[in-house]
Write a protein that binds this DNA or RNA. Structure first.
Length: 233
DNA sequence: AACTAGCTCAACCGCCGGTTC
DNA sequence: GGAACCGGCGGTTGAGCTAGT
């Protein structure tokens, strides 16, 4: 950390200029994303690696959607925030073209007030006699990885993004089609976990890296960041 | 026109976990 | 094992803009 600070001495800070943007974009176009510690040198920028990374990820990246948030997106943010809390990167991963910074800013400027006023209303409601309210419970995702021989995978090689969602176990999409891959609940039937909890059944699947060891050897998946495994606590 | 308050969002900061040596 | 380094995350800040007075 001390090295970090001493290294960043004399490095430019503040708003990026058009010229700096051009240099950074040219550098990423040439070398690709990643190796951020090399980017300032390669691009000829007097900026720290973090500043370069942030500028690219939050502003220059051509995949960023700069339009206003749609109603669907807002609804999704509200639901996911209820589920995940302030896990902005996870929430943003479900919203194509949106960055974690966008989502975080939108939350703080628009949605937080909504939530606060809603909570105040709930408090008022709570005061009414003979009515009980359940406290909101944040269900944190439990990242998992599976052994290559895990029965959960049925020995299938995973090529397409899949989502494994379950309270106990999960079935794996055999053809990569999400709609055919329904989570199995504790009763063994294909209850739509997403539908009941989030109504997200028809959404496209975003990507997210949520992996944890199941055993001592870790399965290598080609689309590993697309592999979700949720488990309610 | 001038001032102020509130809002937005790009950017920074500190921290953390993973990797390398 | 531990120091150094890196990428990444969430919280926070502050410059610039806008609306209200």
């Amino acid at each position: 950390m001390h090295m970090e600070k001493s290294k960043s001495r004399g490095v430019r800070k503040g708003a990026w200029t058009y010229e700096e943007d051009k240099l950074l974009k040219a550098c990423i176009d040439k070398y690709g994303e990643g190796k951020w510690h090399l980017v300032p040198q390669r691009a000829g920028l007097n900026r720290c690696r973090k500043s370069c990374r942030l500028r690219w990820l939050n502003y220059l990246n051509p995949t960023i959607n700069r339009e206003n948030f749609s109603e669907d997106e807002v609804d999704m943010i509200l639901r996911l925030h209820k589920l995940l809390g302030n896990r902005w990167t996870l929430i943003a991963a479900r919203l194509p073209g949106r960055t974690s910074n966008d989502v975080k800013n939108y939350w703080h400027t628009h949605l937080r007030k909504k939530m606060i006023s809603r909570k105040l209303e709930e408090k008022k409601e709570k005061k009414k006699p003979n009515e009980t309210m359940k406290a909101h419970e944040i269900i944190k995702p439990q990242p998992r990885t599976f052994l290559s021989h895990s029965p959960r995978l049925n020995g299938k090689h995973i090529e397409k993004p899949i989502v494994a969602v379950s309270t106990k176990d999960a079935s794996v999409a055999k053809d990569g089609n999400f709609d055919t891959m329904l989570p199995i609940n504790d009763n063994g039937d294909h209850a739509m976990w997403w539908e009941s909890l989030l109504n997200l059944r028809n959404d496209k699947i975003g990507s997210c890296s949520l992996l944890q060891e199941e055993g001592n050897s870790i399965l290598e998946l080609p689309n590993i960041e697309n592999f979700f495994y949720w488990r309610s606590q």
